[in-house]
Each structure stands twice: as structure tokens, then as C-alpha cells.
């Protein structure tokens, strides 16, 4: 009789190559094809049947800014659409229906804004996200994106920024022009798009503030800022170290008071 030796099954090994989910909650919501609104620290994702239909972030200019900044759409036309509808996505759908803008331009701008805000919404956060089941978001005429696709693209964008210049400080700090004597300025020519960014570096604006000012996607601006930082043209404003506080007043343990009290008590006892 032949005894077949069956080796014990190998222990499961966590696949280190697989990227970690950006938000376990989001993964679960995608699996259950949830519909609702996921509010995270740096942005909000609107899900319909597990797909991202719209994203917003205070750090990324919205569709309204992208469309009106360069006169593609009159600000009044956006205002009219926005007041007639429940939110920016519905306003964009109304614009699509009314034919004010070519479908291709609107779809392109919508996807640009979605991936841009999604990048910040999925940024590491210090507080847990909150999901509200809500039937309002729905897959409409404008393109939507599978959750997995947004997560993968966000990870790819993080890696891309890291490869351009590994210091993330330039993404959020006010920017200053770097001292050319210190940095290796002049090695890489400044492109016209980078020049527009560089012209707005004033020691106050951050990269995302510059993006809003330019009516440009925030991630595009981060790419230019990291390239400019790598070439030594800009640097994050070093955080202000607060002046050391004056030493606190010494605690009041005046021995004279105790002495005076003893004297008073002694005098009263006479």
C-alpha cells in the first residue's frame, strides 16, 4: 500500500505586495453597493450603488471653479443652475441637459474634479470617516467611477508625488521662493504652467490656494509644486516656532505673610 504524504497546507501569508485599502469602510461600502455620503476629514464622497458619482474637498477647486475661472461658463449661468438644483452634481447635470456646454467638456471637467477631490478625500486622516445612508446620490448621465478605480488612482498619485520630491510639506504649507544660491535652481527649466504657479508664490498661499486662484486642479498644482521644490525654486515656509513664553510668575509663598499673621494672632491674644 502506498501512503500518500499530503503536505499540510501552507499557512496563509498576507500579500505584502497588495496595496492596503485606503479606507476599510469605503471598501466595505463598495462591496455592499451602498448608496449615501461618506464624510472624511479632508473631503466627501457621494456613492451610488457602490460607485463614486461625485466628490468634494475644501482643498480641491470644484467643477464650478474649473468651469468659470477661464470663462468656459459664465458665473451667472452656474449660479442659475446651482440655485435651481440640490447640489453641484445636479447643477452639472442640468447644464448637460440644457446643452449650455458640450457634453465632452462637461464630462471631462466632472471627471477631473472627481479624481481631484477624491485624492484629498482619501488622504490619511486623524479622525474616522462617517457614512450616512442616503438615497439622494444616483448614477446619472455624467460618468461615475468604481470605488476601486478611485482608490487605485489615489495611491498611484501619492506614489507619483513621492517620486517627484519626497517631502510632503510643500503640499500644505504656505510657499516661499527658495534661495537660488541654496537650491540647485537652473537645472530644470521652468515650464509655462509652472511659471504660472511660481508667479503666485507669495509666502501666504499654499499649493491648493494657488490651484484655486488659477482655476486649476489641485493635484496638477501639487505636481508642479513638487517639481519646483525638487528643482530648488520653491520651499515650504518653515513652521513658525513660537517665542518661548516668559517664565511664569513665581508661586506666592511669601513667608512674610505667615509671619505677619502670627504677629497679628499674638497681638490679638494679648
Amino acid at each position: 500500500m502506498t501512503v500518500v504524504q499530503i503536505p499540510p497546507p501552507p499557512l496563509p501569508v498576507r500579500d505584502k505586495a497588495a496595496p492596503r485599502a485606503l479606507s476599510p469602510m469605503l471598501t466595505r461600502l463598495a462591496e455592499e453597493r451602498a448608496t449615501g455620503v461618506l464624510v472624511r476629514e479632508h473631503g466627501t464622497l457621494y456613492l451610488a450603488e457602490g460607485r463614486v458619482v461625485h466628490a468634494e474637498s475644501p482643498l480641491a477647486p470644484g467643477l464650478d471653479v474649473l468651469l468659470t475661472a477661464h470663462g468656459t461658463l459664465a458665473a451667472t449661468a452656474w449660479q442659475r443652475a446651482a440655485t435651481a438644483t440640490a447640489g453641484p452634481l445636479q447643477a452639472a447635470e442640468l447644464l448637460l441637459e440644457s446643452g449650455v456646454l458640450p457634453a465632452g467638456a462637461l464630462e471631462l471637467c466632472h471627471l477631473d474634479a472627481l479624481y481631484d477631490a477624491g485624492y484629498f478625500a482619501l488622504a490619511p486622516s486623524s479622525t474616522p470617516g462617517r457614512f450616512r445612508y442616503d438615497n439622494a446620490p444616483r448614477v446619472g448621465p455624467l460618468p461615475s467611477v468604481p470605488v476601486v478605480a478611485l482608490e487605485r488612482e489615489t495611491l498611484r498619485r501619492r506614489l507619483m508625488l513621492h517620486r517627484l520630491w519626497p517631502d510632503p510639506a510643500a503640499d500644505s504649507a504656505p510657499l516661499i521662493r527658495a534661495d537660488p544660491a541654496v537650491g540647485p535652481a537652473g537645472t530644470a527649466p521652468v515650464t509655462p504652467r509652472q511659471r504660472a504657479v511660481l508667479d503666485r508664490v507669495d509666502g501666504i498661499r499654499t499649493a491648493t490656494g494657488i490651484a484655486r486662484n488659477l482655476g486649476r486642479q489641485a493635484f496638477h498644482t501639487l505636481v508642479d509644486v513638487r517639481r519646483l521644490a525638487a528643482a530648488g525654486h520653491v520651499a515650504p515656509l518653515p513652521p513658525v516656532v513660537p517665542e518661548p513664553a516668559p517664565p511664569p510668575p513665581p508661586p506666592v509663598t511669601d513667608p512674610d505673610i505667615a509671619l505677619l499673621k502670627r504677629l497679628r494672632d499674638a497681638l490679638e491674644a494679648l
Binding site: H70, G71, A105, C109, G215, Q217, H220
Partner: peptide, 10 residues
């Protein structure tokens, strides 16, 4: 290259 009236790079 697609020349858009809004800022893009597509």
C-alpha cells in the same frame, strides 16, 4: 492634444 477653454492637460 485637446485644447480646452478650461484648465486641463489631456
Amino acid at each position: 492634444f485637446v485644447d480646452t477653454s478650461f484648465d486641463s492637460s489631456v
